[in-house]
């Protein structure tokens, strides 16, 4: 698992660079590093389906992000918000971090799945009966397409709504309305 920890640290460093760099294109490339590092981490966590999906989504997301940042004359950013506000924000985020880290004391240690600590969980049922009840060898596919198929239907609805929203925002007619006022 040493590689997993190295990847986690790599992702955190990439996130810090993505947040702090002044060049927007560098920030977008660091987001790519986070995404692909995360994909490798999912492989180490025995989740190959997530890893594959993460790679596909990451490539498409990077294309979208680069579309927003490339060929803009103002890709460099200057200055943060005013000093006092930044300090207050950092202090509040740090306090939330210190308080929230105690939540993890109530969880079992890393490497002990939460669902094994409780009797009769849904996950255990899916593992035991997924193959014979759905016929799917991949239990993740059994869950998303059979046990929780309505969830996938909702996902498709949300995705469709988001794409419709993006098309409405980007279509040419409203752009014409915005360009000449009144």
């Amino acid at each position: 698992m040493a590689v997993f920890y190295i990847l986690l640290l790599f992702v955190i460093i990439a996130a810090i660079i993505a947040v702090e760099t002044k060049n927007l294109l560098s920030a977008v490339i660091c987001v790519g590093a986070i995404g692909f590092g995360g994909s490798l981490m999912f492989l180490f966590l025995r989740a190959p389906d997530i890893a594959i999906t993460q790679i596909v989504v990451e490539v498409m997301g990077l294309i979208i992000l680069i579309r927003a940042t490339i060929s803009r004359d103002l890709t460099f950013i200057s200055g943060d918000r005013e000093f006092f506000g930044t300090v207050v924000s950092v202090v509040i985020v740090f306090v939330i971090f210190l308080a929230g880290i105690h939540v993890f004391d109530t969880l079992p240690d890393f490497g002990t799945a939460v669902f094994t600590q409780v009797p009769d969980t849904a996950s255990q049922t899916y593992i035991e009966e997924g193959l014979e009840r759905t016929g799917a060898a991949n239990l993740v596919a059994a869950v998303i397409l059979d046990f929780r198929a309505y969830d996938t239907l909702g996902e498709a609805t949300v995705l469709f709504t988001a794409i419709i929203g993006a098309m409405v925002i980007l279509r040419g007619k409203s752009r014409k309305l915005l360009e000449d006022p009144d």
């Binding site: 989504v57 849904a122 993740v140 996938t152 996902e155």
Partner: peptide
């Protein structure tokens, strides 16, 4: 390992692409 969070995170990843767009 637990298949249930994997299935739900699969949903979440795809939705995050839509919200990013």
């Amino acid at each position: 390992v637990d298949p249930l969070p994997q299935a739900l995170v699969l949903t979440s990843i795809v939705i995050s692409l839509g919200s990013l767009a």
